[in-house]
Amino acid sequence: MRIDRFITVTAMGSRKEAHQWLKQGRLTVNGQSVKLAKQQVEPGQDSIALDGEVINYAPLSYYLLNKPAGVLSATKDSRTKTVMALLSTADFRADLFPVGRLDKDTTGLLLLTNDGQLAHQLLSPKKQVTKLYQAQIDGLVTAADVARFAEGVITQHGTKFKPAKLQIMGLDLTKKQSVIQVQVLEGQFHEVKRLFQSIEKPVLKLRRLAMGPLTLPEGLPVGQYRPLTTMELTALKNSSKGV
């Protein structure tokens, strides 16, 4: 494979960073400095190094996690348990990371991988990979709210959100609460919570059900994970390419 592709596959850096390192002469193959991004390398056979430190190649891994509340979507934290602690000793690898962030109190679908290029594509606003959430809302969501979300929300602070597909799943008139599903494109920081804050109806509970074609399996217990199937991975890669 090309050396710039090798850098992204091993999650060492982005393709842009690889090109910078090549120009700076920081990458070597079998002890020889290389400058061209199209330089072909054989993972597992060639010795590729950055600043003299050999980059270890390992096959890519993809895990679908049903994230519980109370854990961070991070690789490490000095005070709070992270999603990486949910992996078994056999499956844990230091280069794995969560794709995107779910808040500490948010549950549901979270992808763990060491495929940096796929993660970048899934999170890039240009790729418009949808994320589907289900939420319990403090307040009665109305048809007017559905229409406002469909038009694109502008908050009182001037933040603009792209159109989101909001669906009312149930209303509790006694508690004045709603169960909704909302599909968003951007993945802005605290996007779903901020959307509902803009209509003064706070989110009480939030769960992610899908990312693009990847859906949360009904039979996967909270806190458990499994490898992606070949079909799931193919569909996910196609969606990240806009196919």
Rank of each mutant, 00 (worst) to 15 (best):
V9M: 13
A11C: 13
G13M: 06
R15W: 02
R15N: 13
E17L: 09
A18I: 07
L22G: 08
K23S: 14
L27F: 06
T28R: 11
T28A: 13
N30M: 04
L36K: 15
L36W: 06
L36G: 01
A37C: 11
A37Y: 02
A37P: 11
Q39E: 09
Q39M: 07
V41T: 01
E42P: 00
P43G: 09
I48Y: 01
A49T: 15
A49N: 12
E53L: 13
E53N: 11
E53G: 10
E53P: 00
I55R: 01
N56Q: 09
Y57L: 10
L60G: 15
L60Q: 14
Y63V: 05
L65Y: 05
L65V: 06
N66W: 00
P68C: 14
V71C: 15
V71G: 03
V71R: 02
A74Q: 05
T75E: 04
K76A: 15
D77A: 04
S78R: 08
R79E: 14
R79G: 00
K81E: 11
A85F: 07
L87P: 13
S88L: 03
T89H: 08
A94G: 07
F97A: 15
F97V: 13
V99I: 08
G100Q: 06
R101K: 10
L102R: 04
L102T: 02
D105V: 12
T107D: 06
G108V: 04
L109Q: 07
L111D: 03
L111M: 10
L112A: 06
N114L: 06
N114W: 07
D115G: 13
D115A: 12
Q117C: 05
L118P: 00
L118R: 02
A119P: 06
H120V: 04
Q121H: 12
L123Y: 03
L123P: 09
S124N: 14
P125R: 05
Q128T: 12
V129E: 04
L132V: 15
Y133R: 00
A135I: 05
A135T: 10
A135P: 03
Q136A: 10
I137S: 03
I137K: 00
I137R: 01
D138L: 04
D138G: 02
G139T: 08
L140G: 02
V141K: 01
A143F: 02
A144N: 12
D145R: 03
A150G: 04
G152A: 09
G158C: 08
T159R: 08
T159P: 01
F161G: 09
K162L: 13
P163E: 07
A164Q: 09
K165M: 05
Q167T: 15
M169Y: 01
M169V: 12
L173Y: 14
K175S: 08
Q181P: 02
Q181W: 02
Q181E: 14
Q183W: 01
E186H: 05
F189Y: 15
V192G: 00
K193I: 02
L195G: 08
L195E: 04
L195F: 03
Q197Y: 00
I199R: 09
I199E: 07
V203A: 14
R207K: 15
R208G: 04
P217N: 07
E218I: 06
G219M: 13
P221R: 13
P221E: 11
G223R: 05
R226K: 14
P227I: 09
P227C: 06
L228Q: 11
T229L: 07
T230R: 10
T230N: 08
T234W: 02
L236Q: 05
K237V: 05
N238D: 15
K241Q: 14
